[in-house]
């Protein structure tokens, strides 16, 4: 198995039926939540999926987790096609791919103790039937997630913990299965600024100590700046630009990436700069604009953008962007 195709996503599409536009219409309309997304993930790599709400990044995470069935396209993991699996195969795969959710207040069952929460994945998968072995694994996962010493937290309830600690519990419950990929869906956006760094540093540490690959879904590029290897920028269900962190930050090529980067607040008043503020909001994914889907809001659109869908242009070995202005 080559290092390249650890997780490979090819032409992934997910359309949701949005019903018929009128009572007697023949054809129903579709929400193009994820529309032809391809990327790959290497072992212990961190990739940041960046985009505004409605760009399809959350649907993409559900597809990768197998919580939604894709309309088209394939996902393969370690060379095996995992797009469509039966329940048993899916369950086996869940040990390899785990997920962390945005809201640590909501993603923990308030009636379970921390010990029950972290133990649960082991029970579900029937791992370590021996109680003492399970306890050992729970303890190790908790300490890896920064809940030290574990005994202090074991028999508490989620509401007795702070937001940062709860997010650590969610992470511990994922780690206990020893996954190879961690899908983090906006894991810090609900937390206080002084706590955010802790969680991000924890994830950065885990990818080194446990060789875990991380897919970090966020709308805030700033928060992943220092630890993501690559960045994929999504707009209306498609990746419009993908490249290494520095390529995207220093030499963004797609006009949407440029605008997105220019409006991220920089905590230094001496560096106040011209912001490219796109007017309006992301269009409804039911009526995707023709041609380049970004052209109605694009500050530099030309007439061809209206009817010609831009191909993905390779700018360097690692850097691709889909914009007609880049076609030479």
């Amino acid at each position: 198995m080559s290092k390249e195709n650890f997780l490979e996503v090819r032409g992934l599409k997910k359309y949701f039926d949005a019903g018929r536009p009128a009572l007697f219409s023949r054809e129903s309309r579709f929400v193009h939540a994820v529309d032809d997304v391809s990327f790959n993930l290497r072992r212990s790599e961190v990739i940041a999926l960046v985009g505004e709400s409605g760009c399809g990044k959350s649907t993409l995470s559900l597809l990768l987790m197998g919580l939604e069935e894709p309309t088209e396209g394939t996902i393969s993991f370690e060379g095996r096609d995992i797009t469509h699996l039966n329940d048993k195969e899916r369950k086996g795969l869940r040990r390899k791919i785990q997920m962390i959710f945005q809201d640590p207040y909501e993603s923990l069952n308030p009636t379970q103790t921390i010990e029950e929460i972290i133990n649960e994945p082991l029970l579900v998968h029937g791992i370590a039937p021996d109680k003492s072995e399970r306890d050992e694994r729970v303890k190790k996962a908790m300490e890896d997630a920064g809940l030290k010493p574990a005994e202090v937290y074991l028999y508490r309830f989620p509401h007795e913990l702070s937001g940062g600690q709860r997010q650590r519990v969610v992470i511990a419950a994922a780690l206990v299965l020893e996954p190879e990929i961690l899908l983090a869906d906006e894991p810090v956006s609900m937390l206080d600024v002084s706590i955010r760094a802790e969680i991000i540093n924890l994830l950065a540490e885990l990818r080194i100590t446990r060789q875990i690959a991380v897919i970090f879904i966020t709308h805030d590029l700033g928060s992943v700046g220092f630890f993501a290897d690559r960045v994929a920028v999504m707009y209306l269900g498609r990746i419009v630009e993908i490249g290494t962190m520095l390529e995207v930050l220093e030499k963004p090529q797609h006009p949407y990436t440029k605008a997105l980067l220019s409006v991220i607040p920089v905590p230094n008043p001496r560096l106040r700069r011209e912001r490219i503020i796109l007017q309006g909001e992301t269009p409804n994914p039911i009526d995707v604009p023709s041609g380049c889907r970004f052209h109605p809001r694009c500050p530099v659109a030309i007439s061809t953008c209206k009817h010609s869908d831009p191909p993905s242009i390779t700018l360097s070995k690692t850097h691709q962007a889909s914009c007609l202005l880049l076609v030479k």
């Binding site: 702070s162 940062g164 206080d192 600024v193 002084s194 706590i195 955010r196 760094a197 802790e198 991000i200 540093n201 950065a204 805030d220 590029l221 700033g222 928060s223 992943v224 700046g225 220092f226 962190m245 520095l246 930050l249 980067l261 991220i264 920089v266 905590p267 230094n268 560096l271």
Partner: peptide, 24 residues
């Protein structure tokens, strides 16, 4: 000072964020 260090700054990528231990 600590709060500023904990805040991600896009102009300084690759700089590790520092967190403030403990809680308010």
């Amino acid at each position: 000072q600590e709060l500023l260090k904990a805040f991600p700054d896009l102009t300084k990528p690759k700089k590790k964020l520092s967190s403030i231990p403990g809680y308010p």
